[in-house]
Simulated assay, not measured.
Amino acid sequence: MIFPAIDLKAGQSVRLYQGDFDQTTVVNADPVAQARTVNAAGLQQLHVVDLDGAKDGQPQNYATIAAIRKAFTGLMELGGGIRSFELAQRYLTLGIDRLILGSVALTQPALVKRLLAEYGPERIVIGIDGQDGYVAINGWFEQSQTKMSQLMRDMVQAGARHFIVTDVARDGTLRGPNIGLYLQLKEKCPEANLIASGGVRNLSDVQLLQASGFQDVIIGKALAAGKVTLPALAEVDG
């Protein structure tokens, strides 16, 4: 599946450069309308991140997220600042299909295990963001000493199946995806489904990822920059 991305900051759709809040570009002042264009192009998946929530550790764009969910038809996954069982329940009750748990996979593994046991691996997705092979947390403001591969192994043992893997150094740069990283992680955790995120430049990158065994891809900056179109992505969506 190909997931167009909508990153929310102060109610607007934006793109960051390498996760830097000081390097923000507004993509669309109306993210609800943006979500509708994804549907109109024939795509039925959407990746949404509450950037403010990831930074602050609590939801900051809830009303906008609710409006997107109401407007969008299809699978919607959401991440950013989901750090309690109660908030996870609230979002799932809202109709979010899949929750992305990032920082808490490292800092609150018991919470992630509880959510996986309650809702299963199709509704609870693990987000592993990192640089130089090590996990970054709290909106990428902190670099941990835990290897991405170790966190993935731990979460597989906890029952997780889907992992969104982002190379922070590639995100928002249009430098191409870090396929080498994905292949290394897949070799160490063959049972995991890796969802590629960060650095995708064009349709050729998507096709290269698919040919390398990674069918699920998240695309943000390339869409915002006009390097690829939604209809073109719909044609190769698998």
Rank of each mutant, 00 (worst) to 15 (best):
P59N: 09
L51Y: 03
Q108L: 10
L75V: 15
L16E: 06
G57W: 02
R114M: 13
Q60G: 12
E77P: 00
L99Q: 01
P190I: 10
I6N: 04
L8C: 07
Q150R: 11
V32P: 05
L185S: 08
C189N: 14
G213Q: 04
A225F: 12
T93N: 13
V125T: 12
V217R: 00
L106S: 10
T229L: 03
Q18E: 10
K55N: 13
I2P: 01
Y134Q: 12
G180V: 06
T146N: 14
P4S: 09
Q108K: 14
G180M: 06
A234P: 02
T166G: 06
Q210I: 03
G238S: 13
G81C: 09
R15A: 01
E77H: 11
A192R: 01
K186E: 07
V236M: 03
G120M: 03
D167L: 00
N39D: 13
L203S: 06
D50C: 03
A41F: 10
L51Q: 08
T73E: 15
E142P: 00
L92F: 11
A88F: 04
Q184F: 03
D171M: 05
A158E: 06
V104D: 02
V217Y: 08
L185C: 09
L181R: 01
E187K: 15
G198E: 02
P4I: 09
Q143I: 10
R170L: 07
T73Y: 11
V228A: 04
M152N: 06
D154C: 06
L203R: 04
L16N: 00
R201D: 00
I219C: 07
R15H: 04
R15T: 03
I124Q: 00
I218H: 04
S212N: 12
E235P: 04
Q12A: 13
F85W: 10
I137K: 02
R83D: 05
V165N: 05
V156P: 01
V200S: 03
A110N: 11
I124V: 13
I128D: 07
F141K: 15
A71R: 06
Q23D: 10
R153V: 14
Q215C: 08
A10C: 09
L43H: 07
R69Q: 13
N28Y: 04
S149K: 14
A67S: 12
T64C: 14
D154P: 04
A35S: 12
A63F: 04
F3H: 08
V217F: 05
L92V: 10
K9P: 03
L94F: 10
N178W: 00
Y91V: 00
K188N: 11
D7R: 00
L115P: 00
Q58I: 05
N39P: 03
A110Q: 14
D7Y: 05
M76D: 05
F3Y: 15
F85I: 13
S197D: 11
D132E: 12
F21L: 09
V48S: 02
R123H: 11
Y182H: 12
D171N: 03
R123K: 13
G80E: 07
R170W: 02
S84V: 10
H162G: 00
V217C: 06
K221E: 04
G19Q: 02
A105V: 01
R123I: 01
L185W: 07
P31V: 10
V236T: 06
I219S: 01
